[in-house]
Computed example of a mutant assay.
Amino acid sequence: MIERIKNQKILEIISYLQDYLQGKDKALILSLIAIFSKGHLLIEDFPGLGKTSLAIALSKVLNLSFGRIQCTNDLLPTDITGLSIYNKNTGEFEFKPGPILNNIVLVDEINRATPKTQSALLEAMAEEQVTVDGRTYKLNQPFFVIATQNPIETFGTFPLPEGQLDRFMMKISIGYPQIEAEREILKGGSSRDRIHNISPLMDKEEILEIQAKIRKVYISDKIINWLLQFINETRKDSRIILGLSTRAGIAITYAAKSFAYFSGRDYVIPEDIKELIPYLVPHRIILKEELMSKEEVILSILENISTPP
């Protein structure tokens, strides 16, 4: 994937962070695509593989504020959104913002929070605002959620409902590093302390400017029709109970535009979509039977649709 990146500013960011996030090139690129597409990211992986380091590194290099929410089953919605506290000196209630009012928010082990608390994230992710005591507060821009969950832990967890999963643009895993990268990590030790010294290579204004440029990237009617055919096939396929929503189609379009921009183009090609499909789609569908993986089902549908020239 990295060989397709041609935009010099994005390449500079990736190259700079490679020293701090060894063996995480693909996760880094996908995270940047989600950020510049105005999407959110769900990372399903085992503990100790660098999910927190990735989130902190992104906030530092992009010069964005960072908040972390460690989910437990006693976490309250106000622990996320903030709450109003009475100030006896002024005789008024003052709003104390929660961690969600940062630019990049790491929601660790999201499936350990109760459904009521998980739903507090829904308004923030969908509407980019939170409501506390009847008052609405707009979130800082840009706004990006990175949520994590452990794929093998089930005790004391609350699986995310389909409506919540659909709010995440991508679901990825970091995976274990290659042996050479892991050797370097073991020799050099944890990079967590060094990550806090990362210098910013971009600022909020530049990020918002690039996001606006990405929305203007051209996608042809032929590709839109091809994508619509793919979406409709997921809804009709006998192996699938729940197919793709319109929101999923929008997410695929925006992500493809970002990948095109990263690749130095002002137009989308089918390969932009094909390469991102495994990260954009599987978490949004439900299979009738687990005889095949979601990825295999999605790719088999894609292969049966003629790719536009």
Rank of each mutant, 00 (worst) to 15 (best):
P161K: 03
D108A: 06
P99A: 03
S119R: 12
A124Q: 06
S173Q: 14
F168P: 03
N89I: 13
L186T: 03
G188S: 15
R135K: 15
E162Y: 13
L165C: 11
F168N: 06
K187V: 08
I100F: 06
N102G: 07
E182Q: 04
L139S: 12
P97Y: 02
K96C: 05
T157I: 07
G134H: 07
F155E: 13
S191Q: 14
E123M: 08
G156D: 03
N87H: 02
V145Y: 02
T148P: 00
N102F: 01
I100Q: 05
V145N: 04
F144M: 08
P177D: 08
T81C: 05
N102K: 08
F168C: 07
S173L: 13
E180C: 10
S84Q: 08
I146H: 14
M170I: 09
P97L: 00
K116R: 15
I172G: 12
A124P: 08
D108N: 09
N89C: 13
Q118I: 07
L83P: 06
I185M: 15
G134Q: 06
Q149Y: 02
I146Q: 14
E94D: 06
A181Y: 10
T81E: 05
A120C: 04
Q149V: 05
E128L: 15
Q129L: 08
P161W: 06
V105F: 00
A120T: 01
S84T: 04
P97Q: 00
I179Y: 10
A124K: 05
V105E: 00
T157L: 13
P161E: 01
N87G: 01
T90V: 07
E109V: 00
G98P: 01
V132L: 02
P177M: 09
I174S: 09
D133P: 12
F155W: 12
S191Y: 10
P177S: 04
K138M: 12
G189Q: 07
K88H: 12
E128Q: 15
N140I: 03
A126D: 14
V132R: 01
K187A: 11
E162V: 12
K88M: 15
E184S: 14
N140V: 07
I85G: 00
Y137K: 09
S190D: 11
S173F: 11
T117C: 10
N89L: 15
K138T: 10
L101H: 04
N89M: 14
Y176W: 09
N87F: 04
D108W: 04
N140F: 07
K116N: 06
D79E: 08
P151M: 15
G134Y: 05
T117W: 05
V130S: 01
Q141G: 04
L121R: 12
T90G: 10
Y86E: 04
K96G: 03
T148M: 01
G91A: 07
M169W: 05
P99R: 03
L121Q: 11
T114G: 14
T117N: 09
L121K: 11
I152G: 04
F143G: 02
T154A: 14
L139R: 13
K187G: 06
I172S: 10
T114C: 15
S191E: 11
P177R: 11
K96Q: 10
E109S: 03
L121S: 10
T90M: 11
Y86I: 05
A126W: 08
P151R: 15
F155C: 09
